[in-house]
Design a protein around this nucleic acid. Sequence first.
DNA 1: TGTGAAACTATTCCGTT
DNA 2: AACGGAATAGTTTCACA
Lengths: 153, 153
Amino acid sequence: MIDDRDRRLLALLQKDAETPLNVLAEKLALSPSACSRRLARLKADGYVTRTMAVLSREKINLPTTVYLLVKTSRHSEDWLQRFHAAVSSIPEILEVHRLTGNYDYILKLALPNVEYYDTIYKAIIRQVELSDMSAHISMETVKLSTALPVGHI
Amino acid sequence: MIDDRDRRLLALLQKDAETPLNVLAEKLALSPSACSRRLARLKADGYVTRTMAVLSREKINLPTTVYLLVKTSRHSEDWLQRFHAAVSSIPEILEVHRLTGNYDYILKLALPNVEYYDTIYKAIIRQVELSDMSAHISMETVKLSTALPVGHI
DNA sequence: TGTGAAACTATTCCGTT
DNA sequence: AACGGAATAGTTTCACA
């Protein structure tokens, strides 16, 4: 139902969603119209959810990445709600996952600088109580892949 | 040099990079051509680096997210090179950051299932020695924002 | 910056394999 | 069921005010 051309198309579109259909068509050894139909199908079937502009973290003045590992003793419904509300109200918090293991949550932050972490820290603890919170500043981004591998489909 | 319309344009393009210029123009109270010129400038100045298709993790058969916290005793040039080579050769490793604090590195993985972690684990330790490695499986994605806040520019 | 024409790109239709 | 080519529709860019 999904063939190798579809996979290659998905890989290409993850790299550059603005590639014109005639160029994509050429790379896939297809006509532009066939390419257009495949793309429409991949969207309709939910493989491609949307397309987005990738901004420069430096230009946008958010060069610093910080990970927060969080533990909590409170696991009530009320606590959860306040936690959800807190993290969704702070746009510098990019990701939040609930984890297995020693920590309850991991948060990923994008900040203008390391000092700014204090602002976020205060904004969080004002809204919810946490039993432990350790910040880990990224000193170097060794790898940052925005393209998911397409070989598991 | 960057005004509020530019910021709004960046925010809109992060949500949907396929929005036609005439509807962007409408939202910004501008003409399509003025909008086109602003976009071209934002790209030329490096604010927008590229545009990409966002794929469904479920559809692509990579629903599971795992974080790896890694410690190492070896910090030689040779070790570093092998580590870089290892992580860049494994496409399921989406992100790698070198950290401050108790851990040396954090890795983010996208996997077909939890069991698949073993495959990645073996692929890593075959290439580099690590003194400690703890896996944290994401049980729930509480927040996943692909759009960077645009208020710090 | 906006307007409108021109250029370009994408989509749909149709006949074919 | 999927393709290529042609016609159509839509989008972007350019010249000029």
